[in-house]
Amino acid sequence: MTMTTALLAEQVLNGIQFGIMLFLMAAGLTLVFGVMGLINLAHGSLFMIGAFAAAAVAGATGSFAIALVAALAAAAAAGALMEILVLRRLYTRDHLDQVLATFALILIFSEGTRAVFGSFPLFLNIPDALSGTIILPGGIQYSLYRLSLIGIGLLVAFGLYLLITKTRLGIQVRAGENDREMIAALGVDISKLYTIVFALGAALAGLAGALVGAIQSVQVGMGEPVLILAFVVIVIGGIGSIKGAFVGSILVGLTDTLGGIFLPMFFDVFMDKSAAASAGSALASMSIYILMAVVLIVRPSGLFGART
């Protein structure tokens, strides 16, 4: 298959779009880890809750905008609840206890969702205003919705940047990352701060779930593959670093997308077509894990992680 410049540009755009969706997931995860030191495996459940809430509300109201708000609210509420009832008891525990507890939460959320919504996937579609394609400069025909996803993702990233660097909450968050005792000594209500940070991360995951749910399948278990990818992202970027999460997301998005295209083409040079497609796609599915291993071998704390 020949590769024109326009096609290559479109694929790069696809990689960036995939990366930006990963960023929405990874941002919350890395924030929670950076501030509270908590490993949250149930972050994928919040993604799923966002998608289900959006599908349910869009089905009832017919409005995608209301559905997005509902997804944000539902995921934030679920996140806050999770933090208050369970997770705040685990901040001082080691990572193992956190893994076990949040693994338990995955079981509860997944099967709980199935108990409420049934075993069949739900319907959630792109809003009419954003459906179809537009022609970009260079003659690239590109999905308007995917373009909007890139826009929303960049906006969120910018908003987070402002929040962390310019607001009182951001200062508290950064202080909390460095020294828990100090910030408590400054008179900040640390448990309230943690709940807010957690709910914020959860809302971002819920937003990602709703946005992605419109072009994917809204079903139980949809959060787990994304969760693993989000972990890969934050580890590559350096845990706790929002900037790292952003760079890591784009890297993973591009590697995954472009690997899926170029590796089969590469094998095609010296193999027959079917075998090349199969071998190339096998290596492509391993590519992001290889990327992560290589990054960690070269920089054991990720690209932007604090040196220890």
């Binding site: 298959m1 696809n14 990689g15 779009q17 899926g260 796609s281």
Partner: peptide, 15 residues
């Protein structure tokens, strides 16, 4: 064209 995708893949933009 003949393509193999990842098992469990959810995004097909590139395909």
């Amino acid at each position: 064209g003949e393509l193999f995708t990842k098992l469990g893949q959810t995004d097909y933009a590139s395909e």
